[in-house]
Amino acid sequence: MISESILQGEKVRLRPVEEHDLPHFVRWLADPEMSRWLERLGKPPTLEDEYEWWHEKRSDPDNVLWAIDTLDGRLVGTTELRLTLRAERAELGVAIHDKTQWGKGLGTDAVRLVVDYAFEELGLNRVELTTDEQNARAIRCYEKVGFSREGLLRQHRLLDGEFGNTVVMSILKDEWEPLGRGDDD
């Protein structure tokens, strides 16, 4: 399911992914520095792979996908929620594909918007994610938003020929201060 909700943050705007976004993803994911962190493939995707990925997401009722644009309309990445409604939880995924835009807080802003949507719009109780233990930039971003570390899955992932650990993190509804409240000062 492609999200029809447009979410406006301080630095980014989340909107539905359009077909004409796909060639940008292919171009960015051809860079191994980018694609190495992605779970879904062992190699960079082709345009055909991206169409298939997009169609799969569109037809999956348990998936909410957004494109991440900067406020001046530049596409920089994607973010998604994979829902398990019977448990009132979702798994969050986010990627800033355009690495010239790394380190500017765009991912953090996008994660805040998605977590707020999960709790305030979807009424979920828990948002969780997994990330590579070596991906310090990502972990810092999630901690800033309010995620806590809950576990370390040992030798969970093959990366650059070595087995690496995966960190599990989550945030609960009780821990979330809704956006748009208490921001006046």
């Binding site: 448990a87 109780n125 809950e150 576990g151 370390l152 899955l153 040992r154 969970h156 599990v168 989550s170």
Partner: peptide, 22 residues
């Protein structure tokens, strides 16, 4: 034991913690 996942599922409507092991 590798982690404790807080309120990860519902049991008859009530959130419960889950243990991940490897």
């Amino acid at each position: 034991r590798e982690g404790l996942l807080r309120e990860r599922r519902l049991r008859f409507g009530k959130p419960i913690d889950m243990l991940v092991m490897g």
